[in-house]
Amino acid sequence: MPASTRSWRARAEVKAGDPLSPGPRPHPSTAIRVLGFSLRDRHSGYVFIAPAILLLVAVLAYPALRSLRLSLAHPGPGPGGVTLLQYGELLGSGLFRQVVRNTALFVVASVALHVALGLGIALLLNRPLYGRTAFRVLALLPWVVPDVVAGIIWKWILNPLYGVLNEGLFRLHVIAAPVEWLTAPTLVLPSVILANVWRGFPFVMIIFLAGLQSIPAELYEAAAIDGAGTVQRFRHVTLPGLRKIFVVALALDTIWEVRRFGLIQAMTGGGPGTLSEVLSTQVFKQYFQFFKFEYASAMAIAMTGLLLVVSLPYVRMIVREE
């Protein structure tokens, strides 16, 4: 008999004499009936998750396998069979190396700033504050804005001719000539990261806020009685209490930022030149604009591999908890 069944039985026996108990649960092997057909409990679980699994296979596994097969195919007319030609071209491509560098810079800066800003604002919104609910809703608003729309909004804000940022700086006599935020080689990536920080910090903030609310108030009280100051309480109570939340926030945010497409495409299209080109914009271009299906698939597979590595800590944590 499986251990889980044994423990369930033990609980059921304890509850048997309790008048408030809802009564014994059905025996695990008791049949349930669907359209007149009987299914055992341990099988019915599979039936219920089958639609989700089928959907995942249809929209995820099948296209992923097709992409993998395409990435190993010979481009154009030539011999059939499997080849690593596309992966070789990827490794030898200076543009691909630059795109990986840009992606790494974009992701690291975005995630770091999301975490810093998200945690800071979550700490503020976790304190007793007049109009706290309103502030929480306001802080969430950038998250509600679709990716592409956020990109267009920021493109207009940073427009050298009509943008409010340059106009404001002019009026304050900070600048004498328009700053080309999205075309100057040194400013373009920081400008895109700035827009992305605005767009993405609310998600991290909400996760941290949920984490902060789950830390028992007694711990802070006990720490205060022991003479811990604000910094010490943050260091010894808040941070350890948020450890798991940190992993979740870092892993999910990193995965999302590696895949970020709409905002960058709308703001710069990867330009000027290739200065703000990231993996997602390159995959799109190679596949849909240059029609290099095999090469784009190899790039997408490389990107997926990178994402799997990034998601490992998150997966490990879930497995440990299971």
Binding site: K155, N159, P160, P178, E180, T183
Partner: peptide, 10 residues
């Protein structure tokens, strides 16, 4: 010559 507006590459 700067005869085109700034930000032309966008």
């Amino acid at each position: 010559h700067r005869v085109v507006p700034p930000g032309v590459t966008t």
